[in-house]
């Protein structure tokens, strides 16, 4: 299905979910005549309260049937960049085996105490990947049975992948 058809099905159910337009940016490498690049999937912006309901809709709807969650990650837009507001953005990339199409959903959260509902009941693979997002960015996932650090050790201070992370010297630094 093309991105426009998918967007019309989604827009019929959920009015608050908007499509992120292809970026137009003034500055880019001169070799590309100032044109930024983005993959040709459908990119959606979802408010954080609607996420669990929307995830169930994406999985169960006949024409969409996104049964495979490819990855979950987050980005930190902390640098004061005039084009981007300051936020943490959680990105979910979904794929459908039946129809062979992909979609990307982005959810913006505030940087202090970000909270999002977990989709572990919808796609079980988000178990460990959401734990990794918690470990690296500090985003708490509600409804997750075991939202704890997975790659760093328990009790590690700070959220490493945030842009304002400053390393506190510990016993591993020489």
């Amino acid at each position: 299905m093309t991105p426009q058809e998918m967007f019309s099905i989604i827009q019929a159910q959920y009015k608050n979910i908007t499509e992120i337009p292809y970026p137009q940016s003034p500055h880019a490498a001169p070799a590309h005549e100032g044109k930024p690049y983005r993959d040709p999937h459908l990119y959606l912006q979802c408010p954080s309260e609607l996420w669990l309901e929307f995830a169930n809709f994406l999985k169960n709807e006949e024409n969409l049937s996104f049964d495979y969650l490819t990855f979950v990650t987050a980005l930190d837009y902390a640098k004061v960049n005039p084009q981007e507001p300051i936020r943490i953005e959680v990105v979910y990339h979904l794929y459908s085996f039946k129809h062979r199409h992909s979609i990307v959903v982005k959810i913006s959260l505030q940087r202090e105490n970000p909270v999002l509902s977990s989709v572990i009941q919808v796609w079980k693979t988000s178990d460990w990947q959401e734990r990794e997002v918690y470990d690296m960015f500090g985003v708490k996932f509600e409804g997750h049975p075991n939202c704890s650090r997975i790659l760093m050790w328990e009790g590690f201070p700070g959220w490493p992948l945030r842009k304002d992370y400053v390393h506190i010297p510990d016993r591993y630094d020489d």
Binding site: A29, G34, P36, V91
Partner: peptide, 27 residues
């Protein structure tokens, strides 16, 4: 190498599964 702004996801069939890279560039 200075790529333009934007984001990309590329994946291949590695011997262990589907290995992918999600890359966000700011120019």
């Amino acid at each position: 190498i200075r790529p333009p702004m934007g984001e990309v996801y590329a994946q291949i069939e590695a011997p262990r599964g589907m290995l992918g890279i999600y890359l966000v560039s700011d120019g």
